[in-house]
């Protein structure tokens, strides 16, 4: 039995559609406007505000979430497109009361974050890398990281955090 998600009063003029999807392991049924971006569904309807919105045109990467285990831009995804998918956000990485997971801890250990706004996006992409069948090579890691903008850290510590996380999940890398 899936949980129903409340929606605001029906002042929205666009067509409403029912979607069933799983968010952080929770099966949900929701009525949403066709135009509702996944980022706004997660943040506004589900109050999962850990997913941040930085540019709404797919460049900054702050809104990155996992849809069926692959990182995608939630600002460039309509909620209705996600019917039948499993979505994971930063809130779903660790249960309340449990210690941080390897990826989260790596960002903490390496001071891989300052204002924390871009962090959830980096963490979700890094989570996908840590779950890959084998350790991605350096160029692949660089490619994935280039999909995220950070304005605070200068990236050095983010790279160190990703390295630590992947060392922990895949064993030490070939390089460095």
């Amino acid at each position: 039995m899936s949980e129903r998600v409340d929606h605001p009063p029906l002042t929205e003029p666009t067509a409403w559609r029912g979607v069933e999807l799983v968010v952080n392991g929770r099966p949900l049924t929701a009525q949403v406007e066709s135009r509702l971006l996944l980022s706004d569904f997660l943040r506004g309807r589900l109050r999962l505000t850990g997913t941040h919105v930085g540019c709404e045109h797919g460049v900054c990467g702050a809104c990155t979430v996992l849809v069926d285990d692959v990182p995608v831009r939630s600002c460039l995804t309509l909620t209705v497109q996600c019917a039948g998918t499993h979505i994971r956000t930063i809130e779903g990485l660790t249960t309340a009361g449990k210690p941080l997971g390897a990826v989260q801890r790596a960002f903490h250990d390496n001071h891989g974050m300052q204002c924390g706004f871009c962090t959830p996006g980096f963490v979700m992409t890094c989570t996908a890398l840590s779950e890959a069948a084998e350790r991605p090579d350096e160029d692949h890691i660089a490619d994935e990281l280039s999909g995220h903008l950070c304005r605070c850290t200068g990236y050095r510590n983010i790279r160190a955090a990703v390295r630590q996380a992947l060392d922990e999940t895949h064993g030490k890398g070939q390089t460095e």
Binding site: T14, A15, R17, R35, L37, E56, L78, V80
Partner: peptide, 11 residues
């Protein structure tokens, strides 16, 4: 920066 209204079908 939000889309204008539209309808959606997934045939």
């Amino acid at each position: 920066m939000k889309p204008g209204p539209f309808d959606y079908e997934a045939p």
